[in-house]
Amino acid sequence: MTITLITGANKGIGFETAKQLLALGHVVYLGARDTERGEKAAAEIGARFVRLDVTDDALVKSALAAIGAAEGRLDVLVNNAGILASGDIDGPSALRSFDTNAVGVVRVTEAALPLLRRSANPTVVNISSSAGSFWAVTDPGRPEFHLPTALYSASKAAATMLTVQYAKAHPDIKFNALEPGTTATDMTAAFGIGRSPEESARAVVRLATLAAGGPTGTFQDENGEMPW
């Protein structure tokens, strides 16, 4: 059995990733802030709910402790939880964006590391974005060039950098960052764009199911490695 934790998984890409990994035989822990929504989503697909808010140290530690007590290890961690934080750019908005999209990765990963070290094939997938790629946002021919998402883009750039630094610090664990593709979720509703979460989840699943010896420290989309 492969033991998997997905944060922010009661809807969108996280939920569809949970469904697809369950179909592959994973034991999936569906992490969500809201207990009612999380339990409902988990029950719908046969996952195991764990209350987890990536901005709350105590809840993160409690969630990983519960998984450790039940399973003894963690094989796959998908750091999926994120916010767009569009609108006014100010200190509070910046703190919220970075706390969720970047510091949240640190909180969950640090709490998960002892359990990941007990896995025969430990894997971490950080959901990042090409909106945080210097290469993409400076190319007028790319859609990212035109996105007014300064805080989201900056915090996702931080998430990608955290990925490569974790990969260097823990060579026995695979860490990869993913641009999942523009997806129609609550986050992108204001833009009215994106493909189905099911389609984007396939890219997450590919990185979540890498064989031992697979790539680490990369930034990828569904077609492979991307420039930063």
Rank of each mutant, 00 (worst) to 15 (best):
T7A: 04
W135K: 11
A211W: 14
N10W: 10
G194Q: 08
T209I: 13
A81P: 03
D172K: 05
I13L: 13
L74P: 03
G25F: 07
I13W: 03
N121K: 02
G141R: 10
A157Y: 00
D90S: 11
P197M: 10
E199P: 06
G25W: 09
V78R: 01
E198P: 10
L178F: 03
N176P: 08
W228C: 05
P215S: 09
D75K: 00
T2Y: 08
Q220M: 14
A190E: 15
A58V: 15
V124T: 02
N10K: 09
A159I: 01
A112I: 07
L162K: 01
R202V: 12
R33W: 05
T109S: 08
P171A: 10
N126T: 02
A102N: 08
A212V: 13
G38F: 02
A177T: 03
Y166K: 09
A203G: 14
A157P: 05
P92G: 06
L64E: 02
L178H: 01
G82V: 00
Y152E: 01
L22Q: 06
T55H: 07
T100L: 05
G68F: 15
H146C: 11
R202P: 04
V28F: 02
R51E: 15
G181I: 02
L52W: 01
E110I: 15
E36S: 15
T138R: 12
S62I: 14
T138D: 13
V76E: 01
A189K: 13
T17H: 10
A65C: 11
A211L: 14
V108H: 00
G25R: 07
G104H: 09
Y166F: 15
T109L: 08
A189I: 09
A131L: 06
T185G: 00
D90L: 10
G46H: 13
I193H: 10
E222C: 10
R96E: 04
R142G: 11
S119F: 01
A158Q: 06
L24Y: 11
I67F: 05
Y29R: 05
L52F: 02
Y29N: 05
N121H: 05
I83R: 07
Q20K: 15
T138H: 12
Y166T: 04
S128H: 05
E198V: 11
G12L: 10
T149D: 11
D53W: 05
V164Q: 13
T188K: 03
P215A: 10
